[in-house]
Each structure stands twice: as C-alpha cells, then as structure tokens.
Design a protein around this nucleic acid. Structure first.
Lengths: 147, 147
DNA sequence: CTATATGCAAATAGTTTGCCTGTTA
DNA sequence: TAACAGGCAAACTATTTGCATATAG
C-alpha cells in the first residue's frame, strides 16, 4: 500500500501545502531525511540523495534544506562549531548532544514544559521556534532516542 | 579602587582558579568580553582586543575563547549557520535571537524552570550544560536584554 | 628547564553565489 | 511563457593546523 508512487504523492502534497513547488529534488531530499530517525549533515544528506538521484548538486541540497526548514517540514540543529544537522522529528522535542560520541538524541518535551518555556519571555517577544539542547554524557549502555 | 592592576589581579585569579595559565592574552580576551554585555563573534573580539594588544593573533583569540568556554568563564552561543558568538553572562539564562535584526537578547530563567528542564532527561543522561534559544521577533520599541 | 601558549601563514570545511540552463504552473 | 528551481564551479568565511618561537611556573 505504500508504493513509490503513493510516497511521491504524499511528499508532493506536503510540499504543495507549504506553497513551494514540489520538485523532484525537494521530494527526494525530504524523503531521505524522513526515511531515517537520525540527524544528518548536509553532506550526509547529499550522499544519501545521490544514490537515488545521482545528478543532484550539493548547492541544490542546501537550497532544498533551507526551503524545507522554512516550511517547517524538517528541523535544523545548531551545534558548537560543527556542521548544521537536520532533523525529521517534528514533535516538540529537545536534543541531547553526547560530548563523548558526538551523537544526538531526541528528548521528548511534555506540553506543560513547552507552555512554561513560552511564559518565560518578556512581553513583546514573540517566539516562532524554541531550540533546547542539552550537552553532556549519556550512559553508554542505554540506547535512548536517535543519534 | 578598580585600577588596571587590580583588574589584572582579578582576571588572573579567575584564570588560576580554573587551572589555566593566566597569560596576558587570556586576560585581555576575558576582559573585553566581560567589558560589554553583548554577544560578539570571534572576529569582533579580535578587533576589540587588538586595540589594547595589537600583536595578538586571531588563532590565539580562538584558543583563548575555547579555554574560557571550557573553564565556564564565558558562554558560547550557537546560531544557525552563523559565526559562533560569546556571552559574558554566566547567570542561568536563555537567548532570544531576533530574526529581523539579528540581535541576541538575554532572557532570565527562573530557578524552578531550570530544575524542570533537568527533570525532562531520561535516566542515564547527565547534562553538563543547557542551551535554550528562542527565535522570533521582538517588539522594536522595547529594549529588553542585551544584543 | 619543561610544558604549554603564542604568532603566523597556509590549509580546510562548510556554505554561498553567480550565471546559465531546465522545469513547473 | 514567465517565474522559479537546479547544476556547476568559483568564491567566501569561519575555523583549524603545523611549526617555530616565546613565556609561565
């Protein structure tokens, strides 16, 4: 029931609903990001995309990523002096950056905390997005979240 | 009462308390960051430092910044595909990144929220630092926080 | 005196830009 | 067919590295 054609239709719809042209490049970039619950860099996405679309260019990958982030179809993760990473998870969540392994884990944020976070802003500040990142060590044996 | 000599002694002490050698370069880098409540980039810090120490190199500024961040004497702010910024404010606080102006404002975080934030982590995750950044628009007439 | 930090210049890596061609609505 | 998106290569910018010299404890 989830043929390539349907998949294409779904991706195409998602893009149209954001008022952006559903180009094959945008669809495939979105597809590879949604296809894995990790936090790839633009280069990693480029590599994955090339296997199904060998002609795509890195500049186009960057363009698509920018568009998809703008649309809110994917999220961007900013780390310390490291390449930007991209995140398929659209749920309200934070990131835990493991300093030892470099891995990123998603951490679920309860709704009441989100509300509390927004309350912290003084009047006149209107937050369009909230970025919460923890940095530290994760117990090596546990396998919470995604990297 | 706050002569240059005392200032030097204070900065020197701060560095020693972190087990790093209090070199003149580290002191002056720390001094210029503490001297203004904004969020300069490495380049901006380099420019400010050069006025009192024209011989310093950019590479040394980066080294000093890394050291100072490691020590916890300053903080680092990671933005989306933009140069890293540095922050003199050591209080528990978040950042509000104004998308229109690019300015960064400090936002105070109440203690109970910090506690709540740490509670959100699953067992086995030990956070050494928490980074909270809001992105959006600030009312132009208001002048909360620092940029 | 020895470990460590600095300065300089060159290298690297991530990202952006310009320009021309191709594609979408 | 008009506006917009893609491909390519070159440019740019932030940051890092290697190595010789200087400095702190």
């Amino acid at each position: 029931m989830s043929s390539a054609k349907q998949n294409h239709a779904i991706l195409s719809e998602r893009l149209k609903s954001c008022d952006v042209r559903p180009t094959p490049q945008r669809e495939v970039v979105l597809k590879v990001i949604l296809g894995k619950r990790d936090h790839p860099t633009a280069d990693e996405i480029f590599a994955r995309v090339k296997s199904s679309m060998p002609t795509i260019s890195l500049a186009t990958v960057y363009n698509c990523l920018d568009t998809l982030v703008q649309c809110g179809l994917i999220r961007q993760v900013n780390l310390e002096r490291a390449p930007t990473r991209y995140c398929p998870n659209l749920d309200q969540h934070a990131h835990f950056h493991d300093e030892a392994t470099g891995e990123i884990h998603d951490v679920h944020l309860p709704e009441d905390l989100m509300i509390r976070l927004k309350e912290v802003l003084p009047a006149g500040f209107d937050a369009r997005s909230i970025d919460l990142t923890f940095r530290g060590k994760a117990a090596p044996t546990l396998t919470h979240g995604t990297n």
